[in-house]
Write a protein that binds this DNA or RNA. Structure first.
Length: 419
RNA sequence: GAGCCUGUAGCUCAGUCGGUUAGAGCGCUAGUUUGUGGCACUAGAGGCCGUGGGUUCAAUUCCCAUCAGGCUCCCCA
């Protein structure tokens, strides 16, 4: 076999037959559950304006400079969408969706692009599903998002995870907390890891989830953000916790769970799985009450989450969960001779019109090879057709599982298979 | 962006301390069965030993680079 001349780019993968069925099964679950929650699907372009994404991720220059795919054509600056919160909000603003009335309860499934070094559960083109509820600051919206997210994993059968919850308050109290945290860290500064020392100024909250062992004891006794929430945020958080408890959704409050972006407010949550590698987050989300306004819309509270599809499928693999049943075909027409082949081509069409899936050999193979092929294709029945059968309009219908044969005419076969 | 590990048949992997025609299992094609699948047996097809360069009389094997995959760090919207 010749060496392939053209291959996929780094971190981009083909989803082949045998694999794609799992994707479809998962997508079906997502659509079905979304319908139960009365969430509406939204689809936005793969390409967005670079400025939108930059605005969305703001000052995190690391991301903007090296982790997005962007190009310029004419006067337009394009970016392959790295996430869907900003594009969905853009669409909400652009089309004045608030005029539809009520909160917009939107969900999506699709590919995202990030120019990162690939590792397990991290590709350059990857897929997410998620929800954005725009226009409600009620804790019910937060809880419905989380409930939907959990419902997907429940339907799939993944039980091995940890739901972590926190509140990061409003930007003012967060700034205040940052100062308090730095105040606490300052006397310990020399004991911090080199990495955390560099984070001290540019992103002190990140020190809280440092993996460096020398940071752990310092972090353990650090002040926690929930002690610095204003009253509204504290009450909101309390209500979210109460509602989750009422729903029997297990969670742990993780005071170290933080978010980098300034537009994030109040509720933050993350679902992690021990069945993944170092990229162990299955899904994450939270409230972003300031983003709609940031993007140029009316001041509108919002909450959402995004979940990685590849990571969910990896978890299924680890847990031996099979999402899609083995492919089958109702009937395979085994032909002997030219007349039978011609008859088979039109009869395939007759079967399909009756709602019966049907196939035949395309390669002119022997009867035995056709039977083998029918077996491989997991056909429920074969019908064997030669000149004698055509003359008599009586065919041998073989039940492949039972290895039993009956003689029937075509209408009888259709009646038997139709259901 | 950094460190470590790995690339041999469609798949999973042996192997060559550098030396004629590179192996297995599964899968694929066919035969044993002149009109009947799964099981068994037999045979066959399928490899520039990831790619490029270097060292050498000789490289799939050693060295370098590169591409791709894995693990970890950075980052994580």
């Amino acid at each position: 076999m010749a060496k392939a001349k053209y291959t996929t780019h780094l971190g981009m993968v083909d989803i082949l037959p045998g694999e794609v069925e799992k994707w479809r099964a998962l997508e079906n679950i997502i659509h079905e559950e979304a319908a139960k929650f009365n969430f509406e699907e939204i689809r936005t372009p793969i390409l967005e304006q670079t400025e939108l994404i930059k605005r969305g991720i703001g000052q995190l220059t690391d991301i903007v400079t090296k982790e997005i795919f962007a190009f310029t054509k004419g006067d337009s600056h394009y970016v392959l969408r790295p996430e869907l919160t900003a594009p969905v909000v853009r669409s909400f603003v652009q089309h004045h969706l608030h005029q539809r009335g009520g909160a917009q309860k939107l969900y999506y499934i699709g590919p995202m692009f990030r120019a990162e070094r690939p590792q397990k559960g991290r590709q350059r083109q990857f897929h997410q599903f998620g929800v954005e509820v725009i226009g409600s600051d009620n804790p019910i919206a937060d809880v419905e998002c989380i409930a939907f997210m959990m419902q997907i994993y429940k339907r799939v059968g993944i039980k091995n995870f940890d739901l972590k919850l926190n509140s990061i308050g409003d930007p003012e109290s967060r700034e205040h907390y940052k100062e308090v945290l730095k105040e606490y860290l300052r006397p310990n500064f020399d004991a911090l890891s080199e990495l955390s020392k560099t984070r001290f100024e540019k992103n002190p909250l990140r020190i809280l989830d440092s993996k460096e062992p020398e940071d752990k004891p310092i972090i353990k006794n650090a002040p926690i953000i929930s002690d610095y929430l204003n009253q509204d945020s504290a009450e909101h958080f309390k209500k979210v916790c109460e509602l989750l408890t009422a729903l029997n959704i297990d969670f742990t409050i993780d005071p170290l769970l933080v978010r980098g972006m300034d537009y994030y407010t109040r509720t933050a949550f993350e679902l992690t799985s021990p069945d993944l590698g170092s990229q162990d987050a299955l899904a994450g989300g939270g409230r972003y009450d300031l983003l709609v306004e940031e993007i140029g819309g009316p001041k509108t509270p919002a909450v959402g989450f995004a979940a990685g599809i590849e990571r969910l499928l990896i978890a299924c693999e680890e847990l031996d969960i099979s999402l899609a049943p083995k492919k089958t075909v109702d009937i395979y027409i085994v032909t002997l001779g030219e007349a039978a082949k011609n008859w088979a081509v039109t009869t395939l069409s007759t079967f399909r019109d009756a709602g019966i899936s049907a196939t035949m050999d395309y390669l002119g193979r022997s009867m035995k090879a056709q039977m083998k092929d029918a077996n491989r294709e997991n056909a429920s029945y074969t019908v064997i057709v030669g000149d004698n059968e055509l003359d008599a309009n009586m065919f041998t219908l073989r039940n492949m599982d039972a290895s039993e044969e009956v003689q029937l005419n075509l209408n009888q076969i259709i009646d038997k298979l139709k259901k």
